[in-house]
């Protein structure tokens, strides 16, 4: 654990000084600032923020994570020539990448809420959006590391990363709609829940909808979730499923990292 902390300390220093993180923080700050300045309705601002978070965070996290891992390859080799076990090094690098990016988001996202005094308006909603952004960052960095550990070719790895983002963020809803259309004569509720759990971006959306009690207004899967689990259970289940989305890719990539040839 001490080794993980050492690596983490320096990795955080390295990532936090990167211009990417500053730009990323500024982006969320100005989006929030703009929404609160130009939109009088807090609920609308929340929904716009949610839509931005579920599209932008996965994209940035999966691309930043892949580029960072590929660029760290020689450094990883150098570190592995030191007396350090692979598990500690991998944990250190993963947390050292995920924590600064999450922190960048958290700062940029929270500042406008405090500046405009909006935190108390919908404290629960603010916390859920913050939590969702952080979870999505960890999930997509875990996915990007899984891709980068398995695929040595940087161009192919980045291609796979963008493809996964496209499928989960853009194409997935279309595929779900197509399935609903094709199997409209069958009861689909349970399959819809399974399909939602298989997509962390949808899960993030559900988490938000459950909190705002507007699941029924926001599409089929939201309504199904609410009907089946009710608000609190639905919230817990989607939260646990999001946690599984971090743990499972991390577990497999860590296992592969331990026996990888550098």
């Amino acid at each position: 654990m001490k080794l993980v902390k050492e690596i983490l300390f320096y990795e955080i220093h390295n990532t936090i000084r990167s211009k990417w993180v500053a730009f990323y923080t500024a982006f969320f700050f100005f989006v929030g600032y703009g929404l609160f300045t130009f939109s009088g309705d807090v609920s609308k601002a929340y929904i716009s923020l949610m839509n931005i978070i579920i599209l932008i965070i996965p994209l940035v996290a999966i691309i930043f994570g892949s580029i960072y891992f590929y660029n760290s390859r020689e450094f990883i080799e150098m570190m592995l020539s030191q007396p350090i076990d692979r598990k500690s090094l991998y944990r250190g690098i993963f947390l050292g990448t995920s924590i600064p990016i999450s922190a960048g988001f958290a700062v940029g996202f929270s500042l406008p809420f405090f500046l405009f005094g909006k935190v108390n308006d919908q404290f629960g909603g603010f916390l859920v959006l913050l939590l969702m952004g952080i979870l999505l960052t960890f999930i997509f960095i875990a996915l990007s590391f899984l891709i980068s550990v398995r695929q040595d070719d940087k161009a192919k790895g980045l291609g796979i990363a963008i493809f996964i983002w496209l499928v989960l963020a853009v194409a997935y809803d279309g595929i779900v709609l197509l399935l609903i259309y094709l199997f409209q004569e069958y009861p689909l509720e349970q399959s819809m829940i399974a399909l939602t759990i298989l997509n962390p971006i949808d899960l993030g959306r559900i988490l938000f909808l459950m909190k705002f009690n507007i699941a029924a207004l926001m599409g089929y899967t939201g309504a199904v979730f609410q009907k089946f689990f009710g608000d609190s259970l639905g919230f817990i289940i989607s939260f646990l499923a999001l946690a599984a989305w971090i743990i499972i890719p991390f577990f497999f990539s860590s296992r592969y990292f331990k026996r990888k040839d550098f």
Partner: peptide, 28 residues
């Protein structure tokens, strides 16, 4: 992995985290 305490290695290409300094790497 402890055996690597007795090894000093100089790789073919040197590449380090670009925002860290030599002193930081050395203290790590």
């Amino acid at each position: 992995f402890a055996y690597r305490n007795s090894i000093g290695y100089m790789p073919q290409t040197a590449r380090y985290p670009e925002n860290l300094t030599g002193n930081e790497i050395l203290s790590l």
